[in-house]
Design a protein around this nucleic acid. Structure first.
Lengths: 219, 219
DNA sequence: CGAACTACCTACAGCCGTGTCAGTAGCCAA
DNA sequence: TTGGCTACTGACACGGCTGTAGGTAGTTCG
């Protein structure tokens, strides 16, 4: 009647690292930085915590890997949001970005990354916001030429991207705090209206010719 | 030769709480959330850590008090930045807000507050962003009337405030991450240019009559 | 001056989280 | 089948941090 130990599942090292990072990210996203504990993560995955140490050597190692993967994942998601089949209105894109940032905890992860200064110095990750800016610039220039308007200055695009990035990050992170501070009980609705407004602001800035009332940026 | 214990300073309870909170805030601002340790704070102040527990009962208690005071302090500073003797250009105000948020670690503190959901529910703190919005709305309306322009809609002001708040928070928190992502090595300069640009954007939005080139909002 | 109050202290207890060690068990190749 | 590699495990050591207990010393008020 000697109860034998439970069956042991063996992953490839890469699989294991991946699963562990995902679990860690979940913990971080919902519980805040202090909730990233080896034992908890291990329990979530049904493994023993030394296994994590086996793959990441040390807790710090896990955290660094986490920070590194966070930026990559964020990039992917943002690109997804932007190059979606139906680009739709600017506001819709903002909504998607916001969701990516908020729901999946990327904003928190990124904020935590910034707070604990664990950001990879100048690592191999491509300067993605720049790529994004380039793409946007090209598209806006093409649009403008098609309508015989002057093309937007590059700085204009750079700063707009930065504005949107900062604002969406800020809003995803502390939207409810802002809501409370400005006395809005209904969080979501107000935030959504805010994004619509921001979308309009950007569009009128870049396509001043638009007939104002209902924006229509078809591609 | 019995070395007698070091002289003991006795504060009022309020003083003590204040000093402790300040030290805790410092720790939090520069070391991230995990750096808020009773023993460290105590060492910083030259007191014994049970003293902290004497005043805040428990570590959680300290953290809650910290979160509560954070919002208050932020409000004060922002109000300071806005009602400064020389209001100056919008960009200058943005600079001041940004400094307040960044240097003094308020952004981090606020972010942490949001992340660990320790935000006081609907506490007595006045809905300060709302007050701020009101003041701004009044002023813009007055300006507009003086120049016989239509006054801005209230929503317009509300959303602008939110935009600035979110953007400055986001930028203060992760400005360098954003810099890196967009491939800008020189952090500060670019960020400053960004704030100037944002200032212009807001001013042209609210005072479209302005002669474009160099804005002049005298009061 | 004496008593009460309480801010503050030293010493200690208990817990919890990381990291180590020596062994176990899947998987693949010879 | 066998041997080797390594993902994985249980048990434990260690340190650090929070929280407790009981005593000490400033302050204030009668």
């Amino acid at each position: 009647m000697t109860s034998r130990p439970p069956a042991r599942r063996r992953r490839t090292a890469e699989e294991a690292r991946h699963e562990i990072l995902a679990a860690a990210q979940r913990r971080l996203a919902e519980g805040g930085p202090e909730a990233v504990r080896l034992q908890d993560i291990a329990r979530d995955l049904g493994i023993a915590h030394p296994t994590i140490l086996h793959h990441f050597a040390t807790r710090e190692g896990l955290l660094v890997a986490l920070a590194r993967s966070a930026i990559g994942a964020l990039n992917d998601d943002i690109l997804h949001a932007i190059t979606a089949p139906q680009p739709g209105t600017t506001a819709a894109v903002l909504d998607r970005i916001f969701e990516t940032l908020g729901e999946s905890g990327h904003a928190r992860l990124l904020a935590w990354t910034a707070m604990s200064e664990r950001t990879p110095r100048s690592d191999g990750a491509p300067p993605s916001l720049r790529m994004l800016t380039d793409a946007l610039h090209r598209r806006l220039t093409a649009d403008a030429e098609a309508e015989r308007r002057p093309a937007p200055a590059r700085d204009e695009v750079v700063f707009s991207v930065r504005l949107v990035a900062a604002a969406m990050l800020g809003d995803a992170l502390m939207g409810d705090v802002l809501n409370r501070l400005s006395g809005h009980a209904d969080g979501g609705a107000h935030q959504r209206r805010f994004r619509r407004w921001l979308g309009d602001l950007l569009e009128t800035r870049f396509a001043p010719s638009a007939p104002a009332k209902r924006r229509r940026r078809r591609r």
